[in-house]
Amino acid sequence: MTDPVTIRNALPTDFEVVIALDLFGDAKEKPAYWRGIFDRYVIAGRDDRIFLVAEIGGEVIGFIVGEVRAWEFGSPPCGWVFALSVAPKARERGVGELMLKQLCKRLKQAGITTVRTMVDREDKLTLSFFRSQGLRSGRYIELEKPIDELELGATL
């Protein structure tokens, strides 16, 4: 893998390879989810939805997906990255960095000045990557809880 890395918009024909790349980070295969993402982020062709793939020698070895989200709990429009994967054989070559930079460039062209993401705290590989790219804890805090049947019954 000595050829240069190139970044381009994802195409409908990248569907299978994206599913395969996704399995490197997550054991669950989810074709229905990716079909929906391809419909909305690739086929729809909207400027505020960005789906990029990285290639080496014509082989797709990574992808990144993001979009512009606005006014969630008052947050001004910002860029969100919600999926990223690089094939293990192509790691430590700056593929993720190139994809994120390209995505940020597109966001900047759309007038966006902040990029945001949310990653499982156990996913140290992805978290370390985003840290290395300068992302830090931001103004918004992720909160969650299990939805308890008994608690719902008591309050409804």
Binding site: R121, K124, L127, S128, R131, S132, G134, S137
Partner: peptide, 18 residues
């Protein structure tokens, strides 16, 4: 847990670059 999650994802390389 949050403190540890932050400190455990900042490598020496990242801290030095920053």
């Amino acid at each position: 847990d949050l403190t540890k999650a932050i400190l455990d994802t900042i490598t020496l390389e990242t801290a030095l670059n920053s």
